[in-house]
Nucleic acid binder design. Structure first.
Lengths: 243, 243
DNA sequence: GGATCTTAATTGTCAGACAATTAATTGTAA
DNA sequence: TTACAATTAATTGTCTGACAATTAAGATCC
């Protein structure tokens, strides 16, 4: 954790980079305590506010956590799957919403990845996953369900499918792809007949999962992608017609 | 951008959350200028250092950028693909390194996702991608190449394959999976005969890509996964024997 | 021994100041 | 009038010093 090198950047950014490097390189291991803010400020020859800004940067990336009190301080944080999920989702959501990624590209990416999970999911699925899928389907059949809740349930259904692959790294990677689609999906209005088509496909996929029939799951996802894309085209056409 | 609600957290965290919500919800659009630090400090009834800590948190997530000078200030940042890649990779790398994710799980996730790209990649690949793959193979055949450079080239090869799918969202999602494996791969020593096996598979995959033969690409990736896992088991066994 | 108080260390927050940077404005000369 | 230089104002970057809040450890008392 020596003096940072890259000039022409904020001191706080330089210090944050230096500490981050120390963490990533393993020089600072999980749960290790960093020097106190006062010590860091003398080490780096900067004031405490500057050190604090650096620490806040790291905290924003969940690289450290801080504790007040006598034995408090900043500690290297173990990045939990839950935290990683959260960051993955926010980053993906922002990327999709701010970069004007068209629906088809995002949709293709999502279903491509999801199809990849299907073989593992079909083979390893447990009753828990099947139950989650079934209960989301039941929710989707509620007649007075709002569009946004329908989409949320859709996300839940697909996450259950992904989780069934029993590979946490895969679940983590897919989390972004699946959840980030929700805002885009929310722009589609799911009127009754369309919902029924999607639900029928969900049922088909769940049945295939129950029988551990991987190729049918893949085929179901294929159809679901086609259906979703067709729906989005309709929504876009309708929006264009209105203007 | 009203007063934050969640109590019992740092003021700077609350303020950061409030501004982040305003950005995510679209209340603050890309390139919009936030109020100056002085204004924010009066708006939120906190001191300027506290506001600054909040802004640094957001800057760490590339949600804003700051500019000094007369017309300076904090601006909502458009999250570029490059930025998103970077964040994706650091998060994935940390998750894998700090959570003691075993090699097989990470490897399975990576190859599962990569196989999913294969059909699109085989169909859409351009000469550029093929050239990148070939040149990485050439690099891998250099006799004096260090293990870490061999791994880096391996990553380059696979990224070219993923990019050939011509879907930036997919490339973004895969970036984490592929790059985060590199530190894990670096723990394997690639002695000469093993390298040749991997290179042969790379050549097989590149040839299949050239002929746009999707199923052969998938089969090649399958074998590559098996080979990589076998190699890692050997490395682990050797390490265990040494102690 | 156990409960309570004190103390010290540490982070959280504040106020005020000055330096550095940058664009707009103003002044000046060709 | 135009081109260029100096000034000015706004803003972020940084520092100093202080105090509040929190927490664990030690000291004290019963």
């Amino acid at each position: 954790m020596t003096r940072p090198q890259k000039a022409s950047a904020d001191l706080s950014a330089q210090i944050a980079a230096a500490i981050r490097d120390a963490i990533v390189s393993g020089e600072l291991i999980v749960d290790a305590r960093l020097p106190s803010e006062a010590e860091l400020s003398t080490q780096f020859c900067v004031s405490r506010p500057t050190v604090r800004e650096a620490l806040k940067r790291l905290a924003a990336q969940s690289l450290i956590r801080t504790q007040r009190g006598a034995t408090g301080g900043a500690f290297v944080n173990r990045l939990s799957y839950a935290e990683a999920y959260r960051q993955q989702i926010t980053t993906s959501t922002l990327l999709l919403s701010m970069n004007e990624v068209d629906f088809e590209t995002a949709c293709e990416a999502r279903y491509t990845m999801e199809r990849a999970c299907a073989p593992l999911a079909a083979e390893r699925r447990e009753d828990e996953h099947l139950n989650r899928m079934r209960s989301e389907i039941a929710r989707q059949q509620e007649p007075d369900l709002a569009d946004s809740d329908f989409c949320a349930s859709d996300v839940g259904f697909h996450r259950a499918l992904v989780d069934a692959a029993m590979n946490p790294v895969l679940s983590y990677q897919l989390a972004g792809a699946v959840e980030a689609m929700q805002p885009l999906m929310n722009m589609i209005t799911f009127i009754s007949p369309y919902r029924e088509t999607l639900i029928a496909l969900h049922i088909r996929i769940a049945d295939a999962m129950e029988q551990k029939d991987a190729s049918s799951v893949v085929a179901g996802l294929d159809d679901l992608q086609r259906e979703t894309m067709a729906l989005s085209r309709k929504a876009i056409a309708k929006r264009a017609a209105r203007t």
